[in-house]
């Protein structure tokens, strides 16, 4: 049953990706990118990675769709047609794909009990978390407590993103708000 669900989800993701390739209207492309994120979130759910699925759905399908729409409103709403066929991007994509598939050959088979994910530190974390922290959600315990430095770094990165955007496209400077004059 799991295999069937995974196959259906992957098929839908491929279909979405192909549809994105063929679209010229960027509004539809942004929406389909959100659909793609939502499908991958479902895939994470079937892998029992609920926290990751949560993040993917909220960030990938939610916020980034809105930000893409905002960017689109600043620029153009139609994709420009390429003037002539150029083989280089196709070549790069094919080579990258082949290398990625070659890379998966080394990986342990799906769900294998001997994979490093099962045998390395994960077992220790699962065992120690109730004793050390008493937090039932091990993911939260690892993120916030054992790997507190990493999460601190991530928070700073997110903050830096805001600072970067505000410096680049404004927000500190007091400028006339286009909606300020609106009477609604």
């Amino acid at each position: 049953m799991d295999v069937l669900i995974n196959l259906v989800l992957f098929a839908m993701m491929v279909a979405t990706a192909l549809a994105i390739l063929r679209m010229r209207r960027l509004f539809a492309v942004v929406m389909l990118a959100g659909v793609f994120s939502l499908l991958s979130a479902l895939l994470f759910v079937t892998l029992d990675a609920v926290d990751v699925a949560f993040t993917e759905a909220a960030v990938g399908a939610g916020i980034s769709t809105v930000l893409m729409l905002g960017t689109m409103a600043l620029t153009s709403r139609e994709e420009k047609m390429p003037r002539k066929f150029s083989p280089l991007p196709l070549l790069v994509v094919c080579i990258t794909g082949a290398v990625l598939i070659y890379g998966t050959l080394d990986m342990p088979s799906f769900g294998s009990a001997q994979s490093p994910a099962q045998t390395h530190v994960a077992a220790q974390y699962l065992e120690r978390t109730p004793k050390d922290t008493g937090v039932p959600n091990v993911v939260t315990a690892i993120l916030a407590s054992y790997r507190g430095y990493d999460t601190f770094g991530e928070t700073v990165v997110v903050f830096t993103a805001a600072v970067g955007v505000l410096i680049l496209i404004g927000g500190f400077a007091r400028r006339r708000d286009p909606e300020e004059g609106d009477a609604d």
């Binding site: 999460t151 997110v158 927000g171």
Partner: peptide
């Protein structure tokens, strides 16, 4: 710390949205 992360992430997203939406 989760509260810190939550406040930071929420306001950063809103700040980025403001920055984009104020221009258009």
């Amino acid at each position: 710390v989760e509260l810190g992360v939550g406040i930071a992430v929420a306001t950063v997203m809103v700040a980025i949205y403001y920055a984009f939406a104020s221009r258009t």
